[in-house]
Design a protein around this nucleic acid. Structure first.
Lengths: 220, 220
DNA sequence: CCTACCGATCGGTAGG
DNA sequence: CCTACCGATCGGTAGG
């Protein structure tokens, strides 16, 4: 087990000037993201790294452990990139906007790491599936609790519409998840969001799609 | 090629009283959803169906064609379940709410079919990936255009906050995608949304998280 | 980091 | 719908 590689180098590092271990992680992340876990063979990874398959086992004892390492690394990197934005004394709408912006930037810069979450979530049964799911669940729960705390204070301070903070947190998470997921699939700059438009979308979301004037009673 | 099976029977039909072809589709959908495309072997499917592997090739010429059939079927079923709700003369907020409700009910009843979208999207490279992606893209574009048309009228009628209809549609799609995706992973009734709460979440989303009173200027 | 190799399983076919 | 089989590839190991 190797524990002195705490970062997965940026994709550019695949080409040159990176340790074999770093190139292993970059290659594995990209391949898992492209083809899924089962769709990627150790030989595929080795070919991209430029070594023989057996050499990979000097760094990780199994394919499973490569995925688990990437998953833990992805969670940590996402935490560092986005979670801090929730703290501070700025208006809650501003903190949440910066949180969303950080998340969208993260997926733009490291899409393979975000894709690992999806890959892990796809493996529902089996040993690997349970281990991966436990890691993802802990991460999601932590994020949810953090958002709920943010909204609890915001509701108390009258900064947001009255209601259950858990509901506010849920609505925000669903919107942010949708945006991040859509950006994950839009790798080819095909429908990448530029930040000006993202800000417009955020304002529309934050203030609501409904007309400001009280709408006529819904005919349910 | 068989074309007289237009439906994938409900999961209960796996047990008894269904043609082999129907059970094949049910088993394949469930297994692809659980383990992914590459993680599911023809032998796995055959075992669940209760026949030998070679017999499956009487119904589809390849594993790829099973996935493509399920993908097309899932798209059609989703269209039938949710798209019609967008039409009519009810207030736009009510039509969109019914659309979301139909989508959430659909994922609750047929999660394997919704999961197929994700499985297909995971296969990025290769023959299968391109064919599946083309099908999904056509479906998504059609849904996007439909929502944009809905919002174009709603903006013109002053039923929603002024702005670009494409932005309204984007915000709604991101929220709905997030909700459906979260329900997809919450198969174990662990955090299934009941419809009363979903309605509360919808109202919060539709009217906006922001306080109704004009918030103080954002300190950007 | 390599060559050489392991048993198991892969998608698919032949032939009935 | 079955038995029997194909070449290819799988994750992983031995030994250096």
């Amino acid at each position: 087990m190797v524990d002195n590689v705490h970062s997965v180098a940026a994709p550019e590092a695949t080409d040159e000037a990176a340790t074999t271990h770093e190139r292993l992680l970059v290659a594995a992340a990209a391949l898992f993201a492209e083809r899924g876990y089962s769709g990627t063979s150790m030989a595929d990874i080795a070919e991209r790294v430029g070594v023989r398959k057996a050499s990979l086992y000097n760094y990780y004892p199994s394919k499973e452990e490569i995925l688990m390492h990437l998953l833990r690394h992805g969670i940590q990197a996402w935490d560092e990139a986005a979670v801090g934005e929730l703290e501070g004394d700025a208006p809650v709408g501003e903190r949440l906007w910066r949180h969303l912006l950080a998340a969208v930037r993260f997926v733009g810069e490291r899409p393979e790491l975000v894709a690992i979450f999806r890959v892990a979530a796809t493996q529902i049964g089996g040993d690997l599936g349970e281990r991966a799911m436990a890691e993802v669940k802990e991460f999601k729960d932590s994020h949810r609790r953090q958002l709920e705390a943010v909204f609890e204070r915001a509701v108390a301070d009258g900064e947001v519409r009255p209601g259950a903070p858990a509901d506010h947190a849920y609505v925000l998470r669903m919107f942010a998840n949708g945006v991040v997921t859509s950006q994950l699939h839009a790798c080819e700059a095909d429908e990448r969001l530029e930040e000006g438009r993202l800000r417009n979308l955020w304002d529309l979301f934050w203030n609501g799609l409904a007309c400001e004037a009280p709408a006529s009673e819904v005919t349910a």
